[in-house]
Amino acid sequence: MEHLRWRPSVNEREFIESALQSDLRVDGRHSFDFRKLKISFGREDGSSEVQLGETHVLGYVTAQLVQPYRDRPNEGTLAIFTEFSPMADPAFEPGRPGESAIELGRVIDRGLRESRAVDMESLCVVAGKHVWSVRVDLHILDNGGNLIDAANIAALAALSTFRRPECTVGGDDGQQVIVHDPEVRDPLPLTIHHMPIAVTFAYFGEGNIVVVDPTYKEEAVMGGRMTATINSNGDICAIQKAGGEGVMSSVVMQCLRIASVKAADITSKIKKAVDSYTTEKALKKVKRLPASLPRKVIVTDVTMEDKGDDELETQAVKTPSDAQEKSKDLATTVKASSHEDAQPMLTESANAEVKITLSSGAAGESEEAQEIGSPKSLKDAIKPKHKRKKNKK
């Protein structure tokens, strides 16, 4: 269905080429300017969405335990899969992937896997038996040009936020793998050593005019294309030159220098977006604990303070019990030494009883209380003890 792809007219082709000769582009950018980049993430880890101008790519990462390759028994695997939907471009055929889809997957796979960006040995669980197989699915939602760069950024962003389940080895033979639920143990992130950034250049006019990040219309007019995959340190991970017109070595070296600068800029944007996503997700997991109660509570004008154990015991001794209040209207205990006489106490109630407890100073033991009959009148109550009349039985 290549005939469905947009083809520019002669006037449109001449207009685009003449504008590029004047260092102008159809969308108003300069030759070495990228379009506006927007990176967002989904609710689940390992899901990213990248918008590079009008190009829209969705990335999703999954992992499962598989048996490793025989030549690499202690390394995991990484695979890139692309899906071109006819909704993104009428030129894309449904079903089997076309040449553009295969080329896109190979370029991104070469930049990630061959450069050892992801630590494959950390994906090994049991050497020769169980390793993690990481799969990156890239869905093209809208083709606005330069799919390689947008898909590469989506893959890196998804890998940076992906978390694989933690697993332990146990059992009787020590070969049984136990995969823990994310709610029981926190998932583990992937070990990413560096970020290989793909930067695509388009050539016009026999390779004399070079632009970065070509649009959909510029790709239809360009004479050739080259993709350089470079990390922020300036290390060249891969170079892809897919046919077209030949390019001089001096132009290639110039493109590599430009790609190194662009790679550092894009890497900082990816890390900033990932850090923002990680911080926002961590704040949602924070549970606030209730504040501790103060030791001093103030209610209106009353201040309540904690008291010591000695004061509480003294207060408990001084406070009469309910049983004593019910049995007696008023009870008085008088402590006196062995050399002093017990002093009678007045009571307002006529039926009140008086208990006199004599404490012995030498032996330290109390004598039995002597019960005195209730006074018949107030005068009788104030009389000395030896003059009171005892109740006759």
Rank of each mutant, 00 (worst) to 15 (best):
R70E: 14
A331I: 13
R25S: 05
H3P: 08
M248I: 12
K389Q: 12
I197P: 00
L104N: 00
V299Y: 11
L123P: 00
L293D: 15
G170L: 05
L378C: 10
S337K: 11
A220N: 05
A127G: 08
K389N: 11
E183N: 10
M87G: 09
S250P: 04
E17R: 09
P94N: 05
K36Q: 13
R116G: 11
E114H: 09
K385H: 15
T200H: 03
E325T: 13
V354E: 02
A150I: 02
A88F: 04
E367L: 13
S100V: 09
A273Y: 00
P86W: 02
Y216V: 08
L123C: 04
A336M: 08
G373V: 07
T278H: 12
L289K: 10
V26T: 09
I140W: 01
R225A: 06
I178K: 10
N143A: 07
E280L: 12
K217W: 08
Q176P: 03
S268L: 10
N233A: 11
Q324G: 15
H386P: 12
A316G: 11
W6L: 14
G243Y: 05
I16R: 00
K38Y: 09
E206L: 11
L256H: 03
A150F: 01
T347W: 05
D186P: 08
F15V: 01
K262D: 02
A228R: 00
T55K: 03
D235W: 07
H194D: 06
H56V: 07
P189M: 05
G59A: 06
L289I: 12
K281G: 09
S260H: 05
Q254E: 13
K36S: 13
E75S: 06
V354M: 09
R7N: 14
R25F: 03
D322A: 11
